[in-house]
Design a protein around this nucleic acid. Structure first.
Lengths: 227, 227
DNA sequence: GGGGCTATGTATCTTTTGCTACGGAATCCT
DNA sequence: AGGATTCCGTAGCAAAAGATACATAGCCCC
């Protein structure tokens, strides 16, 4: 079964017991998502654990007024913890998930995952670790949102998400969605950055020109952190 | 040992195996915190799992500019998940914890907790459940922050946190800290609410006068949620 | 009952956002 | 090439939020 092979390329599923493996084979479902497809809706009951095999998923919240805000991304090898979360607490899924690019997902049905969790140490660790990581991401995000203006958050986002060549390939519209604001604000800030020689904007991308300058925008002079 | 007795009043620790119990007895530490005392600092290495026996802890983030923002509270019987989190990932504690009122805490050393986690199903479930709950709280909080103005968040906070008599006993300064803003903004909004007959303000407290009116502030007319 | 302290009610000014609108540039498709 | 589409830059206005300042009211304690 191909899906299982792909799944086993990732650490935790590599070292399952024979029994666990058999359990897994039975229930595994493969799912293909095309670019832009919405995979999970808010309020949808969750049927299992999602492991991304290829592509990239974006988890975002959607406010009544239509503003989106990206909570985080799920890269290949990672599992959608929110789904896990719901699984263990019988909750409805609390956000939206969209495939950023064409993606392949392995779906492990809830019952199977629970059994695996009971028996396999590696799955226990995976679960706790994944949840913890999410908690951490959310905490930092929350702290960022509380403590900084869009200017700082944008600078930070560019720094964190740009590719190794210092270019962030996203439209301003997308940037705005990630920050939970509007395109105009992003454009205004970017042109300000640009005027200060921090970045260069192109169609569909932003290139970092002054790394340390951008850093200074994120954390102005020395960052006290101590009262 | 008194601390153990108190700890066992709470569900998950009630149904430990004999072996687990013995393990627990050995390492358990009791900690008393007086009102306002800061229990955990950001960046502090975490030595174990914290279970609140009595009182109430407040977990908050502190921005470089001095703005606080409450992330959530920990009530008796709950454990500080962030600490758990750090425990399993060897991370530094990512926020501050302060005792809101005099509080008693049971500290289970990291090594002991890890062993318990390996062996006791109830502890596994507790851990996952606690983490999940936290994820959920953080998600909702994040969504709130993104989607609403201080006016709505304040109204919501009053509704959620007020006692059963409809009175929220907090100073405006504290309210401001919880929302991550300043006292003046809170005062301005409260006086607006007050002018509209939604609440009555007293020294150190806010009383709800018009429940449904306040609700309407939180979610203006019917809340679409569907595009 | 009065001093000292803390909390509240306002007022003003500035900065930041959100919203609407429009013109021009880059890209895609046929 | 040429037309449609998508994306970017900019401007201007209104609402919201932050900062500073000061007067007043309630509370505790002596």
């Amino acid at each position: 079964m191909r899906t299982l092979d792909e799944l086993e390329r990732f650490e935790p599923f590599h070292s399952l017991s024979e029994e666990g493996r058999r359990l897994l084979v039975k229930g595994l479902v493969r799912k293909e998502c095309s670019r832009g497809e919405v995979t999970l809706y808010k309020g949808q009951p969750v049927s299992g654990a999602y492991v991304v095999l290829a592509g990239r998923l974006r988890v975002f919240s959607l406010a009544p007024n239509g503003t989106e805000a990206t909570l985080y991304f799920i890269e290949p090898g990672e599992t959608c913890v929110l789904a896990l979360n719901c699984l263990f607490n019988d909750l409805l899924y609390p956000a939206w998930v969209q495939a950023e690019i064409g993606s392949t997902i392995a779906l492990i049905p809830g019952a199977v995952y629970r059994k695996l969790f009971e028996r396999e140490t590696t799955i226990q660790n995976l679960t706790v670790h994944t949840l913890s990581t999410l908690v951490f991401r959310l905490m930092s995000e929350l702290e960022l949102v509380h403590s900084s203006h869009h200017r700082q958050r944008l600078a930070n986002f560019i720094l964190m998400q740009s590719a190794s060549d210092g270019v962030l390939r996203m439209t301003q519209q997308q940037l705005a969605q990630h920050l939970g604001t509007t395109r105009e604000v992003v454009a205004r800030l970017l042109s300000e950055f640009s005027a200060n020689g921090l970045v260069r904007t192109q169609r569909g991308a932003v290139a970092i020109k002054d790394l340390f300058g951008l850093r200074r925008v994120v954390a102005p002079e020395g960052d006290g952190s101590k009262e």
